[in-house]
């Protein structure tokens, strides 16, 4: 691989730190919902998908069965499969590297990679691996921290983290909006997801918005 551009490194680090810090909230919530510190850390290492993890511990915490916890988490994990379809032809990796690539194929690594794509295939690949490993590192460190000090952390909202994450996603989708069709799709997806929020289980409105992209893409 060629030299990593400063802008790619900066984007990857910003996202890794911002999103990774959310691991504190997960670790704390997980322990509060009855999972052990080891189980909380295993979820972050092995599942490594924030939405799925929150869904799993949330369902158990609300008194749901292990099966419904797994089902809810898996429904949210479908999104990562979709990202895999997008990333596989771009990464072109095989064997062990493909296993690792699959594990770190999440919202953030995909978003940073696609955002960096305008600067060429090298920047795109750097963005994917740096963000994937970066989020993995910080997400797991902060999960451990949060799980160990479940009470002490307090409220991540008081630190603005709950705005920083959508702001980061917005900053990543912004440069991809090149024409009016893209902008209409972006606004349409927001409105659609919001309209579906009271109707569909949490997480599904996001997945369902992919159908709008498909509908738009099918038109010549």
């Amino acid at each position: 691989m060629s030299k990593v551009e400063a802008i790619t490194l900066r984007d990857s680090l910003s996202v890794s730190l911002t999103v990774g810090a959310y691991g504190i909230a997960f670790g704390a919530a997980s322990v509060a919902n009855g999972f052990s510190v080891v189980q909380s850390c295993l979820l972050s290492i092995l599942t490594f998908s924030g939405a799925s993890q929150f869904a799993a511990i949330g369902v158990i915490g609300a008194g749901g069965s292990a099966l419904s916890a797994i089902a809810s988490a898996s429904l949210l994990g479908v999104r990562n499969g979709l990202y895999g379809v997008i990333m596989a032809p771009r990464l072109k990796v095989k064997g062990f590297k493909r296993i690792i690539a699959a594990q770190i194929t999440i919202d953030e690594s995909t978003a940073v990679a696609l955002g960096a794509e305008k600067r060429g295939p090298d920047a795109m690949q750097h963005g994917f691996w740096l963000t994937g490993f970066g989020v993995f590192l910080f997400w797991n460190l902060f999960t451990l921290l949060g799980a160990l000090s479940a009470q002490a952390m307090g409220d991540t909202r008081a630190w603005g983290l709950d705005s920083a994450v959508p702001a980061a996603f917005l900053g990543l989708v912004w440069p991809r909006l090149e024409n009016n069709r893209d902008r209409a799709l972006a606004i349409g997806s927001v409105l659609f997801a919001l309209a579906m929020t009271p109707v569909l289980p949490a997480g599904l409105p996001i997945i369902a918005s992919a159908f709008i992209a498909i509908a738009v893409g099918l038109r010549p």
């Binding site: 999104r79 979709l82 379809v85 997008i86 919202d107 995909t110 978003a111 696609l114 709950d162 705005s163 994450v165 959508p166 996603f169 917005l170 990543l172 989708v173 991809r176 909006l177 893209d182 799709l185 972006a186 606004i187 349409g188 997806s189 927001v190 409105l191 659609f192 997801a193 919001l194 929020t197 409105p205 996001i206 997945i207 369902a208 918005s209 992919a210 709008i212 992209a213 498909i214 738009v216 893409g217 099918l218």
Partner: peptide, 19 residues
Amino acid sequence: RINALIPIALLSALVGVQT
């Protein structure tokens, strides 16, 4: 084409839902 549009839809929906 769809492959390029899906990230726009998903990321935008994520922004909307998380906001």
